[in-house]
Amino acid sequence: MYKYLSGVFLLFISLHVCAQQRATPKIKILLLGSVHFNPSTQDVYQNKQINLTDRQGQVQLEQLLAQLSQFAPNQICIEVPTQKQSKIDSAYQQYLKSQYKLGTNEIDQIAYPLAKRLNLPTVTCVNYRGSFDLDAVTKYAKENNQTAQLAALDQFAAGTAAGIVAAQQEKSITDLFRFINSNEELTKNAAIYTAYATRIGQGSDYPGTDLVANWYSTNLHIYTNILRAIRPTDKSIMVLFGYGHITILKHLFQSNPDFDVVDVADVLKQ
Rank of each mutant, 00 (worst) to 15 (best):
V123H: 02
V126K: 01
V126D: 04
N127L: 08
Y128G: 05
R129F: 02
R129Y: 03
S131P: 08
D133F: 10
L134R: 15
V137C: 02
T138C: 08
E143G: 00
N144W: 11
N144C: 06
N144Q: 08
Q149E: 15
A151Y: 00
L153V: 07
L153Y: 15
D154I: 04
D154Y: 14
Q155M: 08
Q155E: 15
A157F: 11
A158F: 08
I164S: 01
V165I: 13
A166S: 10
Q168F: 02
E170H: 11
E170K: 15
S172W: 01
S172C: 10
I173V: 14
D175S: 12
L176C: 10
L176S: 06
F177A: 02
R178P: 06
F179D: 09
F179E: 09
I180N: 02
E185W: 14
L186D: 06
L186S: 07
L186I: 13
T187K: 04
T187G: 05
K188M: 05
A190H: 06
A191Y: 10
I192M: 13
Y193K: 15
T194N: 12
Y196K: 07
T198E: 13
T198N: 13
I200V: 12
G201L: 12
Y206K: 15
Y206Q: 15
P207H: 14
P207Q: 11
G208D: 09
D210G: 00
A213I: 15
A213F: 12
W215Y: 14
N219S: 03
N219M: 05
H221P: 07
Y223S: 01
T224W: 11
I226Q: 09
L227P: 03
L227D: 03
R228Y: 11
I230H: 01
I230Q: 01
R231F: 05
P232M: 06
T233C: 03
T233V: 12
D234S: 06
K235I: 03
K235D: 01
S236I: 05
I237R: 00
M238E: 10
V239K: 04
L240I: 06
F241G: 00
G242Q: 11
Y243F: 12
Y243P: 00
H245A: 02
H245N: 07
H245Y: 04
T247W: 10
I248S: 01
I248G: 00
I248Q: 08
K250M: 09
K250D: 06
H251D: 13
L252C: 07
L252G: 06
L252Y: 11
L252T: 05
F253T: 02
F253Q: 02
S255K: 13
F259V: 03
F259S: 03
F259E: 00
F259W: 06
D260Y: 09
V261M: 03
